[in-house]
């Protein structure tokens, strides 16, 4: 078996000391070594975006990044979005607007939208649609996803959630 590297992954503010082969993807490390299975794999070749996480605040396809590359950076996954029982405005909006069916793509969309809206809270619907078109959903036809993100965007503008990293 190939050589392993001891690294520390910081996910959702918590340090995970893990030992991984250089070729191990960030997605696999999060899922299998850190037990954070909320990050999903829909294609493993960078198209579907189900694996989207935030790395130092930026949306990243975790299937296209190696775990060793993420060392020393702050990774955020869907598990870190809610504050205890209190859902993030995006999670709430997806629930209220039926922005998910099977829910497999949902973590990726939530993290993509979180990253986009934290960077630029005033995105228009057209800009949001453009950003959201980088992820795939096979169930919803996107209409309610866009509706959810727009609803959350206006709520986040009204009362911005403190972005903890």
């Amino acid at each position: 078996m190939a050589e392993k590297h001891a690294i520390t992954l910081n996910a959702n503010g918590k340090d995970y000391r893990i030992s991984v082969e250089a070729r191990r993807t960030l997605a696999d490390a999060l899922r299998d070594d850190c037990g954070l299975t909320g990050t999903h794999l829909g294609c493993e070749h960078g198209v579907c975006g189900a694996c989207t996480v935030l790395v130092d605040g930026k949306p990243v396809r975790s299937c296209l990044m190696f775990a060793v590359q993420a060392e020393g950076q702050a990774v955020r996954t869907v598990e870190g979005l809610a504050k205890g029982e209190v859902l993030h405005p995006l999670q709430k909006a997806f629930w209220e607007n039926h922005g998910l069916q099977c829910g497999f793509c949902t973590p990726g969309f939530l993290m993509l939208a979180t990253g986009a809206l934290e960077a630029e809270p005033d995105l228009s619907e057209a800009e949001l649609r453009d950003i959201l078109s980088s992820n795939l959903c096979r169930c919803t036809g996107y209409q309610n996803i866009i509706k959810s993100v727009c609803a959350a965007a206006s709520e986040m503008r009204a009362c911005p959630p403190s972005a903890d990293r």
């Binding site: 794999l41 859902l87 999670q91 629930w95 829910g103």
Partner: peptide, 19 residues
């Protein structure tokens, strides 16, 4: 009505096959 099944799916607590 809002769906009963959504909370775990929104928080990353879903149990899909690979999980």
């Amino acid at each position: 009505l809002k769906r009963l099944e959504d909370r775990p799916l929104l928080t990353g607590a879903g149990r899909f096959a690979a999980d």
